[in-house]
Structure formats: structure tokens, C-alpha cells
Design a protein around this nucleic acid. Sequence first.
DNA 1: GTGGTCTAGACCACG
DNA 2: GTGGTCTAGACCACG
Lengths: 122, 122, 122, 122
Amino acid sequence: MTDMVIKIDEYSDVPIYQQIRNQIVMGISSGELKAGEQLPTVRALAMEIGINTMTVSKTYQMLKNEGYITTDRKNGARVRAEIQKSGVISDENKAELRRIISEARLSGVSKSEIKNLVDEYY
Amino acid sequence: MTDMVIKIDEYSDVPIYQQIRNQIVMGISSGELKAGEQLPTVRALAMEIGINTMTVSKTYQMLKNEGYITTDRKNGARVRAEIQKSGVISDENKAELRRIISEARLSGVSKSEIKNLVDEYY
Amino acid sequence: MTDMVIKIDEYSDVPIYQQIRNQIVMGISSGELKAGEQLPTVRALAMEIGINTMTVSKTYQMLKNEGYITTDRKNGARVRAEIQKSGVISDENKAELRRIISEARLSGVSKSEIKNLVDEYY
Amino acid sequence: MTDMVIKIDEYSDVPIYQQIRNQIVMGISSGELKAGEQLPTVRALAMEIGINTMTVSKTYQMLKNEGYITTDRKNGARVRAEIQKSGVISDENKAELRRIISEARLSGVSKSEIKNLVDEYY
DNA sequence: GTGGTCTAGACCACG
DNA sequence: GTGGTCTAGACCACG
């Protein structure tokens, strides 16, 4: 069982279920959550964060649809052992990346500064 | 007057006024919209896209707040001559960038592929 | 929930959404509205004042942008617990202050009278 | 004839005729414009600033109404010799002052800092 | 139940 | 002619 901590920014416009989803995906990517590792139950995670169980449930459904986790009544939610590697960035993420780079450029951020961030986050 | 074309994805979760805002910002960044160049009037752009003037007005107000354009009754909306360069990427955009890179990584996209996108979009 | 009363001067040049915004900011500053306190819902305030919900919504959006309140679907609109203290007066407010003092001076109002007002309003 | 320079901020939301009016009032208050001193003709000032004569005309009309200047065809516009001293600050300016002080207070500006500004601007 | 978005239409001040 | 404001009404996602 993971002891990863989920932090909700209540001031953010990003919906709570999205914030949780993003943090779990980043946790898997960083290795903090290993393949096959069990996630907290919907109830437990909702309690811990202090939100509605429906919200956590929505998150797990989303992660399942995206292929990041598996869920069943016996084992609860687990990080999927073999996450499908499409090898490409989704069109939506490409569009977002383009927007971010445009804004950074207009703010006077150099290309190499952005690449340093890529190195840092990858 | 610009002949830039704004395209709305009506099925997107991104609000229309945000989509327009993003495209204008990217237009400025790419040089398609030059400093001082006049944007379409609120009415003209609303007509062209087939949406309400209020929605375009909201976009222009947002761009004005962000310092990308100026608006007044004499000159209409224009790309601002001297866009303030903060020199940094906003915390929100950093978080988004981190999320995108995490997802790309999990999809098997290499670091150099992402950097190539940075080169392409910058 | 606050029982603060918002009063609109319908003959004023100041837009309604601005008038509401100003009164809420002054309410926070005076302590009539406490940190964390819930503001009326968009619908309730619109009904109470007798104006459109869009206008109240615009006010809340503005207050949110300025960092005075938070809004979300769970908690509605609330006075922000930790309002950012820039420590400075904005250039716009400085210009306004200068104009007011110039006019007061020309009307024969003494410096100490103005300072008494500062004491009263602070 | 004054050689006072009027500066228009084209990015400001304050209408041009208001900006000119404010600067002339502040010029009178500071002594840069003396009692009886002649102001530029409508046409000359419009040319100098690069705006419509109607706008300057509106400004002069406003200043006349407020009792700051006199106008006639023979002498043009002149700073009034005896500006009426009501001895009080207008309700509008009081409301504005209160708003500014509230905002300054919330931004963490001390009372004495505001009073220093009063000293500076008076 | 809440705030967020959008429409169709109107009127206004500025210039 | 332009952007700014406002209404009356509607639908939506989040929780």
C-alpha cells in the first residue's frame, strides 16, 4: 500500500477529481507508485482528503478508462502492471504544450530554460 | 487588420472565450499578429465565428487584463506594443508542463522527442 | 453567512459590478466580513439587489482575480483566509489619491482635515 | 500662456477628456497654472495631444462647470482668478478616498505611509 | 445547490 | 463605429 500523499489546492479551478488524477499519474510516472501497487480504497482516500467518495470514485474510473490502473472488488484499485505505451503525445496535450510554450516565449523565457524544465520534470 | 482565422472546437471542454484567447496569444507569439496590429471588432469576430458578442468581449477583457492587448473606443482592440516580460513561467503553466511530461513519459515518449516539440513550438 | 447590506446607486457612473466589488472590499477591510466567511450565492445576492446573476457573477470573478475571495461549487464564495499583502498602493490608486488631494486643496480643505479622514477610514 | 505638458495614457480606462481635466486641475492646485493664466485654445491643445477637438472642448466645458476656468470668445480659456472654496471634500471623492484607504489597508500599507503620501501630494 | 458559460438582444458613453 | 454594461433566460459540470 502506498503512503503517497495527495494534496488538494482548494483555490484551484482544476476540479478536485482532476487534481487527484493528475497526482496519481505523476506518482506512477515518477516511480513513487510502482506497477501492481495497491491504491487506497475509495472510502479511505476520500476520508484522508476530506472529500466526497463520489469524487474519488470518479477519479478511479477515469484512471481505469485511461489504462493507468485496474479495479476489481477483490483487489481494489492497483497500478496497472503493463501500461500501454502509445509512443505519442495526445493531441490535447500537444495543444496545451504549444500554448504554454507560446506564453513562456512572450514572457521572455528562453528556449533553453524550457528545456531545462523538461529535463527536470522528465 | 489581421486575417488570422480563429477556429472553435465546439466539443472541447475549454470555454469558447478561452479558446479564442489561446489562439490570439499563440498568434502574437508566432508573429502572425504584430505589435500594434488591430484585432477584429468585437462584433466582427463574433459574427465571423458565429458566437455572441459578449463572449468575444470577455476574451478581449481577459487579454487586456493579461497585458496582451489594449482596447479603446477609438482604436478598437490592438496587440500591445510593449508586452511585459516577466521572464518566468507561471506556476500554473509549470504544473501543467509537469503533468504533460509525466504523461508523455508514461506513454513511452522520449525526452528528446519532447525537446523537439519545444523547438518546433517555440 | 454575512448579513451585510449592499447598496446600489443606480444613477452612478460606476458600473454595478464595480459598486458591489467596492463595497465587499471595504467590508473585508473594516472587518464586517471576516476571513473565511461565506458570501451570499450569486443567485441570492442578485435577487436581493434586484439585478441579473451575470452581474454578480462578474463581481465575484473580479474579486477572485484580485485575490480577495475564493469561489467553488462546494463552498460557494468565501472571503479568502490569506489575502496577499503587496505592501504597496497601486499606481492607479496613487493617481486617484493625488487627484483627490489636489481637488480638496483647491476647495480649501486643510492637510490635517484630510489626515483626519485617513484616520477615520483606515 | 502656459507651457504645461498634458500626457495621455492611451492604455488607461479613464476617458481622455477626464485625463486632461484631471491634469489641469492638478496643475492649478500645484501652482503650475496660475490664476488668470491663459490655457491653450481648444484647437491648439487638440493638435498638441493629437486628439479630436471635441474632446478638448468637452474638457473645457467640464472645467468651466466646475468653476475652475472661465471661457469666452475674446479671451479664450483662463484659470479662474477666484476659485470658490467650498471647504469640503465632495461625497464622491470621500467615497473614493475610503475605497483607496480600504484597499491600501488590506494590502498591508500602514496608516503613516498613507499620511506621508498626503504630505507629498498636498 | 453552486458557480461558470453562453445566447439574443439592448442601450450607453466616448470620440 | 467602437467597446462596455446589463438583462432574462438557459444549460452544464462539479460535488
